[in-house]
Computed example of a mutant assay.
Amino acid sequence: MSKIDPAKTLPEITHREIVARSRLFKVERLDLTFSNGEERQFERMAGGNRGAVMIVPMLDENTMVLIREYAAGTHTYELGFPKGLIDPGETALEAANRELQEEAGYAARDLHVIHTVSMAPTFFNAEMTIVLARDLYPQSLEGDEPEPLEVVEWPVSQANALLARKDFTEARCVAALFLAQKWLEEH
């Protein structure tokens, strides 16, 4: 196994500018000089880095709650866990409970951060906090979805069948599933 150098020097950002923008995104070009003198240009999505949450809601010890919603990127309906941005002034756990109510019609009395993942760190400065929610009770808040989301109950014991589905493909959901199973085994 090769050694990782914790003191590796970050490249110097010599210039940055916004090169494209849309209603939702800004693309930033970075001019970089690496410690060995090499110079490169990189592009990345620029953003407010508010963070996001993904919730693995547990209806009981063996039943997860998933949602099925339209995914514009693939122009399909995808099955996955509730998720959303953290609003200004919210903690990750507050955002998780709000998103759970908006998307799945449940609130949780017991919330645990189980991991934080980055989303395509080569292109984004964005993190998603994975939250396990237990002791659920019916509670809805109005969300910003254009249509009602389908709520699907799924047994944890049937995780392999979930992974085999053509509509459960989002990498963050797959990671959340494995992280939740690990957390549940340990607790």
Rank of each mutant, 00 (worst) to 15 (best):
L85K: 01
A171W: 04
V113I: 15
G47C: 01
N36K: 09
T122E: 13
V113E: 15
L184P: 00
T122N: 13
Q158R: 11
E12P: 00
L136A: 13
E153A: 10
L163S: 08
I114N: 08
A171S: 11
M58Q: 12
I18H: 02
S118P: 00
M128P: 02
I130N: 04
Q181P: 01
K166P: 04
T9M: 15
L30A: 04
R68H: 09
G51L: 01
P11K: 13
C173I: 04
I130Y: 01
S157M: 05
T33H: 06
E12A: 05
T122V: 03
M54S: 10
I130H: 04
T76N: 11
A52V: 00
A164F: 01
R16G: 05
D87C: 03
I4W: 11
F124M: 12
E150T: 05
A126R: 14
P146R: 10
R134I: 08
F25I: 04
A92M: 00
H112N: 06
E90K: 08
E103L: 02
R40P: 03
I130V: 15
A176K: 08
G51W: 06
V152C: 09
I13V: 15
G143W: 06
R165W: 02
A72M: 07
R29Q: 14
V113D: 00
I114F: 06
R68V: 02
L136N: 12
G89E: 06
S118W: 07
N36P: 09
F34Q: 08
M45R: 10
R134Y: 11
V131Y: 14
G48A: 05
A120W: 04
V117D: 15
L163R: 15
I67V: 14
A180H: 12
A161S: 05
M45Q: 04
D31L: 09
L66E: 06
I67D: 04
A108I: 00
K26T: 12
F42P: 02
Y77N: 10
V174L: 08
E185Y: 05
F42K: 14
A180L: 09
G51H: 07
S2Q: 01
N97T: 03
F168V: 04
F42L: 15
F25Q: 03
P121T: 10
L149F: 11
I86Q: 00
L163I: 10
F124K: 05
Q41V: 10
P121V: 03
V56Y: 02
I67K: 05
G105M: 01
L132M: 13
Y137G: 08
A107R: 11
R21S: 08
V53G: 01
E153P: 03
V65Y: 09
L100I: 00
A96Y: 00
G48S: 14
K166E: 12
K8A: 15
P146V: 14
T129F: 10
V117M: 02
M128Y: 03
F124Y: 14
A180P: 12
L24Y: 12
P6Y: 02
D167A: 01
A133Y: 13
L184S: 02
Q181M: 15
A20W: 14
E103V: 02
V56F: 11
K8D: 10
I4F: 11
L132A: 10
A176H: 08
I4M: 09
R172W: 00
F81K: 07
E43W: 06
